[in-house]
């Protein structure tokens, strides 16, 4: 049985004057332990799809199931990390990372110790009692990852988590996130508009076309790139070829008149 199954999703947003179809007939499957990326131009409904997978709202048509259960009923099995860290500025780092457990009424000494251990693993020591604005952007994004992982979600969704960071921090974090998730064997979906990031981090890349958002093509990343850390993958000899393939495909998606 498939771990995550997205089955014929349609979604239309209604306003007083318009009806915009954000997603049209999107179907895909993700295996357990797999790292996949959603790549595509803006307006291809990536964030809408993530929100639907997270069970934040129901699609107009279709269904998403995680281990055979509809995601709307699943609790705390899906972690969602946003573009910016969105740490609560009035809470300390410790309160922030324990937030998910507190909301789910599952805060036990074990889980708390686990969360603090994760924090240390991310290279953040002695920051528990500090407030978010005392940390740098990269540190805050790591705290946000700990907050997401603390509830031990089965599926992790990352919505352009590195886009607000400077390039050096971004490369370092890609490595850290990739190795951390691999070591836990977590299933993850990364949304990005950075081709390099998609290639270097994932096992498969789903390319979406825009207006309406549709699944255009799926790329399987060669094994040698999958096994390397993101930073090494970017310098691997197999990297340019797959980059070119995806680049050309992305170019072909743009309507001729828009260039």
């Amino acid at each position: 049985m498939d771990f995550l199954k997205i089955n014929a999703i349609h979604h239309t947003y209604f306003t007083k004057t318009t009806a915009v179809t954000a997603l049209s007939d999107v179907s895909l499957e993700v295996e357990e332990g797999e790292f996949v990326s959603f790549l595509g131009p803006s307006g291809c409904g990536k964030t809408t799809l993530l929100s639907i997978i997270a069970g934040l709202f129901e699609p107009t048509e279709g269904a998403v199931t995680l281990e055979g259960k509809r995601v709307e009923t699943a609790e705390n099995e899906i972690g969602y990390m946003l573009q910016q860290d969105y740490l609560f500025p009035w809470k300390t780092i410790e309160e922030n990372i324990l937030l998910g457990l507190k909301i789910g009424n599952s805060l036990s000494p074990d889980k708390k110790a686990y969360a603090l251990e994760l924090l240390a693993k991310m290279g953040l020591k002695e920051v528990e009692s500090q407030f978010p604005k005392q940390l740098s952007g990269g540190m805050r994004q790591r705290v946000a990852l700990v907050r997401t992982l603390a509830t031990e979600p089965k599926l992790l969704m990352l919505d352009e988590p590195f886009s607000a960071l400077d390039y050096q921090t971004k490369l370092k974090l890609e490595d850290l996130v990739s190795t951390t998730l691999k070591s836990f064997g977590k299933t993850a979906i990364l949304v990005t508009h950075d081709i390099g990031e998609a290639i270097s981090m994932s096992d498969r890349v789903f390319l979406f076309s825009a207006r309406p958002g549709q699944l255009h093509k799926t790329f399987v990343i060669p094994k040698e790139l999958r096994d390397a850390t993101p930073f090494k993958a970017r310098n691997h000899e197999a990297y340019p070829a797959i980059f070119q393939t995806i680049w050309k495909e992305l170019e072909s998606l743009e309507p001729a008149g828009e260039r």
């Binding site: 997270a54 969602y80 946003l82 969105y86």
Partner: peptide, 14 residues
Amino acid sequence: VDPNYIKVLQTFGA
């Protein structure tokens, strides 16, 4: 209040 804070909480099932 920034709706993204609410989104964070909703993903935790708040």
